[in-house]
């Protein structure tokens, strides 16, 4: 991967965010993004997007859903106990 090649940089950004690249490849991306606002913006945007998804995924489900689930657990365990 050449540090000056936007297409090559963009093709590897997902792997970069996930920590799957070698250190030299990470350095190349970071060096490129310091000089290329466009690629830096893509990296920032992807990081933001992943953050939104993970934030939503880790949020507790609504109380009404959890209450139903809890009720089902209690009912099942009571049935199995008797």
């Amino acid at each position: 991967m050449k540090a000056g090649d936007c297409a090559a940089i963009l093709a590897h950004i997902s792997a970069y965010l996930d920590g799957e690249l070698e250190a030299t490849e990470c350095d190349a991306i970071e060096r490129h993004c310091r000089e290329c606002d466009s690629c830096a913006s893509v990296v920032a945007g992807l990081r933001h997007t992943v953050g939104l998804c993970r934030e939503a995924g880790s949020a507790p489900l609504p109380d009404v859903v959890r209450a139903k689930a809890r009720e089902s657990v209690k009912k099942l365990l009571a049935e199995k106990k008797s």
């Binding site: 996930d18 920590g19 990470c26 990081r47 953050g51």
Partner: peptide, 11 residues
């Protein structure tokens, strides 16, 4: 460095 994600610590 290779194994670390380049996302924030929470992510």
């Amino acid at each position: 460095k290779t194994r670390n994600s380049h996302l924030s610590p929470e992510e």
